Amino acid sequence: MGTTARRAMTTAYTKGVKPVIFRMHPDRVHDDMVRHGGWAQRLTPVLAAAESLLTHSDPALTTEAYGLTLRNPLGLGAGLDKNVAIPGILQMTGFGFLTFGSVTSRVCAGNPRPWFHRLPADESLVVHVGLANGGAERVAARLRELADASHPRLTALPFKLSVARTNDALAGDLEEGIEDYVASVRALDGLSPLLELNISCPNTTVGEAFTEPDALDRLLAAVDQASPSQRIVLKMPSDKPWEHFRDLVDVALDHRVDGLTLANLRKDRDAVTLDPAIRGNLSGRPVRELSTELVRRTYLHAGDRLTLAGLGGVFDGRHAYDKITAGATLVELVSGLIFRGPAVVGTIAEQLVALAQADGFARVQDAVGSRAEEPARTVA
């Protein structure tokens, strides 16, 4: 029943819903989704029914990561729900975990609009949001509110909070940036199982200072000293040469970092045709092979000392499986939801089981790193 329902929903989305919303500006679509979704998620019986159809359940998908048992290895990446506005809607789509944020210590208006530009032929979004969010204190209050709510389904899934440096006129030197991160870490302490330090947002006025090894070492030393109760994950850049990237991994290994998310938006826009006046960086398909190769190299370098999450251009089970066999325990997606619709998560989960079992693995997690020694594989 689930497979048939997901196929029907995918057809309805691609043939009916997507052509309509793709005629609307993506900024408006995003804002409407958050606004209307906040109301719709109160219809818990409807959500439960939808979740039962969208989610593919199979013991072969069960994944152990960060001391958590996840129903599958698929997670929502940061950026879609910055203020924890629609967790119930996102849970309905069948993810194993969610990521909220990125959150900053101060309220952040973000960059001037427009924030998004679609590239349908490239299955990519140009993103120039600049970390717009309500600030760490507001998000902390929201999480406490949800924890006390009468609708526990709104917080039923494990989730990760992504934290970034505030992108505003008060951003200063390196020391100020460290204090900014630590302020968010302290405000959000204990409110999630995982805390992701986003050191690689490419859409900010102060750049990516903490993608330099010495600066990252100072930041992580300060976070170590703050001693948050959550496990720490780093959101890594996609555009550094391997030797530089490897140095960042080594810094992470020297601190209490448990995992890496690979990788953030792609800065190199030469792979697409794009008006230079459009500002922002690329998500989706242009990141796919780049992120999978970073997963592979990082897995070979660090082994099981870090839990890796592959992010970028995941639209079907093969894309996700390539990241898993390269070394990713977890796989995250955002653009896949936009271009393929809400049934994509369950579809990918079902395909993952088939791919893993075709390779002789009883569980999807058993396939982690199984092809890391092979040369990078080109994916269409």
Rank of each mutant, 00 (worst) to 15 (best):
A271H: 04
E243V: 14
K82I: 10
R142E: 15
V84G: 05
S229V: 10
A40L: 15
D27Q: 00
A109F: 01
L125Q: 05
D27C: 05
S200D: 12
A252H: 02
V295W: 01
R377L: 14
V287S: 11
L294H: 02
D275H: 06
P114W: 01
N281Q: 14
A140E: 03
T166L: 09
S150K: 03
R266L: 15
A121L: 11
V126C: 10
I178T: 08
D58G: 06
L294C: 11
T14F: 01
A320Q: 03
G360S: 08
P45A: 15
E176C: 07
G336V: 12
S229M: 10
L260C: 14
E374A: 15
T347W: 01
P202G: 13
N203T: 13
V127M: 08
T63Y: 05
K235Y: 08
V20K: 03
G38K: 08
V314Q: 01
D32I: 12
L70W: 04
A183I: 09
F100A: 00
V127F: 08
L143P: 00
G207A: 11
A309E: 07
D316R: 06
E64N: 12
K18W: 10
K240F: 09
L61M: 11
D258W: 04
A171I: 12
R363K: 12
V107Q: 07
P87D: 06
G259N: 05
